[in-house]
Design a protein around this nucleic acid. Structure first.
Lengths: 341, 341
DNA sequence: TTGTAAGCGTTATCAC
DNA sequence: GTGATAACGCTTACAA
C-alpha cells in the first residue's frame, strides 16, 4: 500500500472494489447522513485496505474552494511570528486545512502586487495578516476586492469582529505603569515603538493615561523612539538616561527594546532594578532569558492566532468566535522601588 | 477586473475572447516554443485585460503534481525555524511554488501517522525536514515509501547530497575552542546538547578534538548536558561552576544555553568574561542581545534553506546544488584571557 | 438510500 | 502551429 511508483488509489478504485458508485464513496468521505450503515462500513473497509486519501486538488477544483489558509507578515520579532504560526496550527490540526506562509518586505515598492499575486495564485480560503501590515486599511480593501476572506491582527479596533483579533495593549500598559507608580516611581520614561505602528501608539497611550491619572509628568523629555529592535532600544535607553534628570523607571514598548535598555543601563554602571526599573511588552522568550528576568506584559499571540484561524474556517460563526484578548501583567525581577524613594 | 462576487476568468474565457482554443492558451501560459508570435501576443493581451490567473488546483490535478513545498520541524529555537522559512521563501519567490509548514511534537506517539497524513493529504512536491527530526532515518524511509521527494537538514552527513544540506558544526566548534585555548584557557567546559541530537554529538566532538589536540583534559567533570533551552543551560552551567576546580571557559552547544550559563555565572557573582569566558553556537538574535554580547559560531541556516528548496524545485539538478555549508566564528565580548592566566 | 450525467479548470494525445 | 477530445479526481444536480 502506497509504495514508490505505485499510483495512488482514487475514488474510482474504492468504488470498484466496494461495488458501489463513486458518488456513494464521496458520501462516505463527506459523512453524508443519508447512508446505509452497511454500505458505509463496506466502503470504509475498502478505504482502509487501500490506504485511500482523497485528492485535495480535485476536491478544491470541484468545490471551487481551497482548504488553505495564508499568513502574511513582516515582523522583526521571530518569536511572535512563530507563536502565531503555532496558534494557527493548533486550530487546523486534524483538519484538511494547510497553512501557507508569506513573509514580505513592507518597504518593498512591489508589496501590493506581491500580495495580490499571492492571493490570486493560491486561491486561499482566507488569509491572516499581522501587524504592522494589518493596520493598513488598503490591504483589507485589497482582500475584499479579491474576494478573499481575511482576519487582521491588531492592538486595537481595526475592523468588525469577523475580520479581527485584537488585544488591549493600552490597558495592559496602563496597568504595568500603574505598578511602577505604586512602587514610588515619579519619573517614568517611555521607549516607544516606530511611527505608523498602531501597537506603538496604543502602548504610548497606556503609559500616558497611567501618568496623567496621577498628575505625573509625561513630557517629551521622557520619550524616546525605537523601532522594536535591540539596537534602537539601546539608543533610546541611552537618550533617556543621558538626560539631566533621568527617569527611575522605563517602560519599553517591546521586550527586545527593553533588553536594549537593560543593556545600556549596565554599560553606564547602573544596576537593574536597583538604579533603574524596566518593563517590557510581549513576554517572548527573551524576557525570561536576560538578566535580570524582565517584568513584562504578556501578549496572547497564540490564542489570538487560534481564533483568527477559526474565524476563517467557520466564516458563518466568525462573529461568535472571540475577538478581544486581554493582555496579562507578568512581574519578574526588573522592577523595584526607586533608590531615592 | 476581479471584483468581489465576480467569478474569476478561466482559460475558456481567455480562449473565447482571443478566438483561439484553450489548448493554445495553455501553450501561451506554459511558454511552449512552437507558437506563432502573433497568436501569443494576442492571447497575452487578453490575459492581461482579463487579469486571468491560472488555477493551480486544476493545474495540479491535470499534471498530477502539486507546486507546494512542505517544511516539517520541531525545534525549540524560533529564530532558527524562521530563518529557515525565509531561506525557503527566498528560493520560491517569483515562482508558482508555495510553502506549507508543519510543526510537530517529536515526543508524540502519533508523530509518524501525523507526518504520513500531512504528506499524503497535501501531495507535496517535496518536503524539508529540520533537526532533530531530520536525523531519524525512519522519516527518510517514510518519504521514500510515500514517493515524496525530501531534503534533510543536518549537522553532519545524513544522506546523499541530493537529499541533504549540511553544516560542519564539528569544525566550527573546534575552531572556536581553539581560540579559547590560544587565549590561555586550560580548563574548558562543555554544555552539550540533548542525547540523540546529531548536532549535539558533532559539537561535542569539535570541543573534544580541540582539547585533545593540545593534550588538555576533557573528562566527564567538564561536561554537563542540557536540552537546548535556557533553563537547562542554567542548570548545566551551575553544575560546572559548582565543581571544585571550575572551568575558566565554557562552550555551550547553542546560544540559548550559553545565555543560561552567563545568567548563572552572574548569579554567582562572576563577571563574564573576566571570570568566565563563554561561547555559544547559532548566532541567533539572542547572541547580540544579551550582556555581554556573545561570542558564537554562526550557523548559515538561511543559505542552507535556500539550497534545500532549490534541490526540491529542480530535482534533476539537486546534486549540483550546494550541500555543505561552512559555519563562521563570530567573536564578540564574552571571552577574554583567563583571570589567573 | 443509491446511481447517472455533467462539470470544475487545466493539460496530454493526436489529429489536421 | 493549432484544435478537438479525453483525461485528471472529485462534487453537485437530478433521477431512480
Amino acid at each position: 500500500m502506497g509504495r514508490t511508483g505505485e499510483a495512488k488509489p482514487t475514488i474510482n478504485d474504492v468504488a470498484r472494489l466496494s461495488g458501489v458508485s463513486k458518488k456513494t464513496v464521496s458520501r462516505v468521505i463527506n459523512r453524508s447522513p443519508l447512508l446505509n450503515d452497511a454500505t458505509r462500513e463496506k466502503v470504509e473497509a475498502v478505504i482502509a485496505q487501500l490506504g485511500y486519501v482523497p485528492n485535495p486538488q480535485a476536491r478544491a477544483l470541484a468545490l471551487r474552494r481551497n482548504f488553505v489558509l495564508g499568513m502574511i507578515y513582516d515582523n522583526p520579532n521571530a518569536q511572535m511570528v512563530l507563536n502565531f504560526q503555532e496558534g494557527v496550527l493548533d486550530a487546523i490540526r486534524d483538519s484538511e486545512y494547510a497553512l501557507v506562509i508569506h513573509p514580505v518586505d513592507r518597504h518593498s515598492p512591489t508589496l501590493f502586487d506581491n500580495i495580490r499575486r499571492f492571493i490570486e495564485q493560491q486561491r486561499l480560503s482566507g488569509v491572516m495578516i499581522l501587524p504592522p501590515l494589518s493596520e493598513n486599511d488598503a490591504f483589507a480593501a485589497l482582500f475584499d476586492e479579491l474576494g478573499c476572506n481575511y482576519v487582521r491582527m491588531g492592538s486595537a479596533e481595526l475592523a468588525d469582529p469577523a475580520h479581527l483579533v485584537q488585544s488591549n495593549d493600552r490597558e495592559g500598559v496602563r496597568e504595568a505603569v500603574e505598578c511602577l507608580i505604586a512602587e514610588g516611581h515619579r519619573r517614568i520614561g517611555l521607549v516607544e515603538g516606530p511611527e505608523g505602528f498602531r501597537s506603538a501608539y496604543e502602548r504610548h497611550q497606556g503609559w500616558r493615561e497611567a501618568l496623567e491619572a496621577q498628575g505625573l509628568p509625561c513630557d517629551a523629555s521622557l520619550i524616546a523612539r525605537g523601532s522594536y529592535t535591540f539596537e534602537t532600544g539601546k539608543e533610546a535607553g541611552a537618550a533617556l538616561l543621558d538626560r539631566d534628570d533621568p527617569p527611575t523607571a522605563i517602560f519599553a514598548s517591546n521586550d527586545v527594546m527593553a533588553a536594549g535598555v537593560v543593556h545600556v543601563a549596565r554599560e553606564r554602571g547602573l544596576d537593574v532594578p536597583r538604579d533603574l526599573s524596566v518593563i517590557g511588552f510581549d513576554d517572548t522568550a527573551i524576557a525570561a532569558t536576560i538578566w535580570p528576568p524582565l517584568t513584562t506584559v504578556r501578549w496572547p499571540i497564540r490564542t489570538m492566532a487560534r481564533s483568527a484561524a477559526r474565524k476563517l474556517i467557520h466564516p458563518e460563526a466568525a462573529n461568535r468566535e472571540q475577538s478581544r484578548f486581554p493582555t496579562e501583567f507578568v512581574p519578574r525581577a526588573s522592577t523595584s522601588r526607586p533608590a531615592q524613594g
